[in-house]
């Protein structure tokens, strides 16, 4: 597949690359990597940092035998070392219909999906740059597209192309899709969930708990448009649900306060759930420059 250069340039603008040049993305928990890397591994191997001893068994490599202990105690012990492994990151990008909002972005603005795509691209770039494999799941009510975790730049280009070629169109069932992802991932890693989370909060919270049970680390980035955060309409307006298509006519000036209150409850629920699972929760407004958002996020994640 021919890689469209312009796609990469669009997602990874020079100013973004400059901003992310020295920003690592670290996991706050041990991750199971296949290669030696900068992330702590749950496995004890034969690296440079001593961890403990174990009794020698037949078949063990004699190079790891602790000769000094043998000389003193005449017992066979094998030296074990902390293993540093690479981070396996997975980007879970929401491509449900609500991510298409707003239909006509203001000048200098973008849809939630475009914004989320740039966040995903930035994070993928950071992982690839630090030699960590990164995979991609695009989901709405199910997994729409996926890419395995790899750490090459060509893989990065493939992922970006896949993101670019996917359009938010279908209904969303984030809870179901996230559960499916959780079942597929066999090894612990860092999950980067980028979505507006416009679904039943109970099911999404369940999915987050599922990820936590499987030992994943996660960063939840909830992308909302500025107008969603601050209800902009002051006159009577008929609103159509972008996923169900149902219509509601409301008096904007009258309903704004109640809307904001309900939204606050909604956001608070996710924030609280993420805190309970020790996940990072980031609320992203499309009015916020995504490079600044990523810089701030990565700065917080520095060890």
């Amino acid at each position: 597949m021919k890689i469209d250069r312009s796609t990469i340039d669009r997602f990874l603008e020079p100013r973004l690359l400059r901003a992310l040049a020295r920003m690592p993305l670290m996991s706050r928990r041990v991750v199971e990597g296949a290669m030696v890397g900068s992330h702590r591994s749950p496995f004890k191997g034969f690296s440079t940092e001593f961890a403990d001893h174990r009794t020698y068994v037949r078949g063990d490599d004699l190079r790891h035998l602790d000769w000094k202990v043998l000389a003193r105690t005449e017992r066979y012990y094998i030296k074990r070392y902390e293993e540093n492994t690479n981070l396996r990151g997975y980007i879970l990008l929401d491509c449900s219909a609500s991510m298409r909002f707003p239909a006509k972005p203001a000048p200098g603005r973008m849809t939630k999906y475009e914004y989320a795509s740039r966040l995903a691209a930035g994070l993928a770039y950071v992982l690839v740059r630090q030699q960590d494999p990164v995979g991609l799941f695009l989901f709405n009510d199910d997994i729409v597209a996926e890419a395995p975790a790899m750490r090459s730049l060509s893989h990065l280009r493939k992922m970006l192309t896949l993101i670019d070629q996917t359009h938010p169109s279908s209904r969303t069932d984030s809870g179901k899709a996230l559960n499916t992802v959780a079942r597929r991932l066999k090894r612990r890693g860092l999950l980067l969930i980028i979505s507006d989370l416009m679904d039943d909060p109970e099911r999404i919270v369940q999915s987050l708990a599922h990820f936590r049970q499987r030992g994943h680390d996660a960063i939840v980035i909830q992308v909302l448009d500025e107008s969603e955060l601050h209800f902009p309409h002051t006159d009577t307006v008929t609103l159509r649900d972008m996923e169900s298509g149902s219509l509601v006519t409301v008096d904007g000036a009258e309903i704004a306060a109640d809307y904001t209150a309900k939204l606050n409850e909604f956001l608070e629920r996710y924030k609280k759930s993420c805190f309970e699972h020790n996940f990072d929760y980031v609320l992203a407004s499309t009015a916020t420059p995504y490079d600044a958002l990523l810089t701030a996020l990565l700065s917080r994640r520095k060890r």
Partner: peptide
């Protein structure tokens, strides 16, 4: 009244009931 797409209709419906 103008008909506009809106992603967060669930909150509007809840708010409208009140």
């Amino acid at each position: 009244s103008k008909t506009l797409d809106w992603p967060a209709l669930r909150f509007l419906q809840a708010a409208r009931r009140e």
